[in-house]
Computed example of a mutant assay.
Amino acid sequence: MNKKILLEDLGRKDYKETWDYQESLFQSILDVKIKNRREGTQLETSNHLLFVEHSHVYTLGKSGDMTNLLVDENVLKEKGASFYKINRGGDITYHGPGQIVGYPILDLDNFFTDIHKYLRFLEETVILTLKEYGLNAERSPGETGVWLDVGTPFARKICAMGVRASRWVTMHGFALNVNADLGYFDLMIPCGIKGKAVTSLNVELGVVKVDLEGVKEKLLKHFSALFEAAFLPVTKHV
Rank of each mutant, 00 (worst) to 15 (best):
T113G: 03
K131V: 00
D107N: 15
I115H: 04
V203T: 06
Y118S: 05
L135N: 08
T199F: 12
N202H: 15
K196S: 02
G142H: 05
D186V: 00
L135Q: 09
E143L: 06
D186L: 05
G173C: 05
L108A: 12
L108Q: 10
L148A: 10
T93D: 13
I92S: 00
T125Q: 00
M171K: 15
N110K: 07
V198P: 01
I189W: 03
P104I: 00
A197L: 08
P97Q: 12
D91H: 12
N110M: 13
Y94Q: 07
G183S: 11
Q99K: 09
L119E: 06
K196V: 14
M188Q: 05
D149H: 09
G192D: 06
N136H: 12
V146R: 03
L148V: 15
V207Q: 07
V146F: 09
N136E: 15
G183W: 08
I189Y: 03
E124N: 05
E124Y: 01
F111E: 11
K117S: 10
D149K: 11
L187S: 05
G134Q: 12
F111Y: 12
G195H: 00
I105T: 09
K196P: 10
A137C: 12
A197F: 02
I193T: 07
Y133P: 15
G173S: 06
L135V: 15
K117W: 06
S140Y: 14
W147H: 04
D114E: 05
S140E: 02
V208Y: 12
I127Q: 10
H95F: 10
F111Q: 09
